[in-house]
Amino acid sequence: MVRLLEKRQRTTASVLTVFAIATFSLHILVLFLFLLQGLNIRQLSLTKPPNFVQLIDGKPVGNIDDLAREPEAIRQFISKTMISMFSWSGTLPAQNIEEVATPKPDLGVLIQTPQGGSQKVSTSSWIASFALSEDFRKGFLSTVAEMTPTEVFSENPSLMMTSQLVIKRVYPPRQIAPGKWRVGMVADLIQKNRVGGARLITPFNKDLLVRAADYFGNPQGDNGTDLQKAIYSVRADRLEIYEIRNLCLLDGNNNLNNDKFTQCGAGQTSDSFTR
């Protein structure tokens, strides 16, 4: 009888031991699966979104290479960005029918200048500057602030000035590296007094270096402010300008139907693009 009880106890102990080992192994397996899943989720969160669709004139264009961009999309990006950057009206873009008849005044955005002071740029210039690379944007805005007349923000109608960038031509992009292009632009910067109509026309021929960029959608979606939506729409082109240089036309700008242009001066950089 005693032997039978001892045998049953050993059998029960063996079963409990096997059960404990199996349970422990199962916990280890579950922990390993959790770790593996966590690593997969982290890897997915760090992966940049693929460029499945590219829009040209509102029409989708298939794109397999994430660094590839259609030439016309690059040209439209350049035109849209530079016009927004250098067209100053002294008023904000209308957001509704009422603002079309009575536009709100543009109070401007204060920008620190290299001299240590601060000057204003138009709101449209500030928003368009998000189409620039982050390392280039700050210095570029300082230069734009120095170019922007204070009369743009004047409340006196007799003193107010406007500025408009009139683009004559944007040359076909030339690829200089995977995902990087060089684009020439021929334009005039026209500054005009609202009263009297006196105009100052300045040639604005630039050589722009553009590259493909990542884009992450607005996390707030339709709940974001108009300003936030505008900034995210600027980045939606998946392109950014990372340098601007002066552009020299080899034919003296007498013929806009050829591609004869070069960079002005070997020593000039983006800091001297307005000269």
Score class of each variant (00 low, 15 high):
Leu39Ala: 15
Arg42Pro: 03
Arg42Trp: 13
Arg42Ser: 15
Arg42Gly: 09
Gln43Lys: 13
Leu44Asp: 15
Phe52Gln: 10
Phe52Asp: 12
Phe52Gly: 01
Val53Thr: 13
Leu55Glu: 13
Ile56Arg: 09
Ile56Trp: 09
Asp57His: 11
Asp65Ala: 10
Asp66Tyr: 04
Glu72Gln: 12
Ala73Gln: 09
Ala73Gly: 05
Ile78Met: 14
Lys80Gln: 15
Met82Trp: 08
Met82Gly: 01
Met82Arg: 01
Ile83Pro: 01
Ile83Phe: 00
Ile83Thr: 15
Ser87Thr: 11
Trp88Tyr: 06
Thr91Gln: 06
Pro93Thr: 03
Ala94Glu: 03
Asn96Glu: 13
Glu98Ser: 14
Pro103Cys: 11
Lys104Met: 15
Lys104Val: 15
Pro105Leu: 09
Asp106Cys: 04
Asp106Val: 05
Leu107Tyr: 03
Gly108Leu: 04
Gly108Ile: 06
Leu110Asn: 08
Gly116Ile: 12
Gly117Met: 06
Gly117Gln: 02
Ser118Tyr: 09
Lys120Pro: 07
Val121Gly: 08
Ser124Arg: 01
Ser124Pro: 00
Ser124Val: 04
Ile127Gln: 08
Ala131Ile: 02
Leu132Glu: 05
Ser133Asp: 02
Ser133Thr: 10
Phe136Ser: 01
Phe136Cys: 01
Phe136Lys: 04
Phe136Ala: 04
Lys138Pro: 01
Lys138Met: 06
Leu141Arg: 12
Met147Ala: 07
Thr148Tyr: 02
Pro149Val: 02
Pro149Tyr: 08
Pro149Asp: 02
Thr150Asp: 12
Glu151Ser: 02
Ser154Phe: 03
Ser158Tyr: 09
Ser158Pro: 06
Leu159Trp: 04
Leu159Asn: 13
Met161Gln: 14
Thr162Glu: 13
Thr162Cys: 05
Ser163Phe: 07
Gln164Val: 01
Gln164Asn: 07
Arg169Glu: 07
Pro172Thr: 11
Pro173Thr: 09
Pro173Gln: 02
Gly179Thr: 03
Arg182Phe: 07
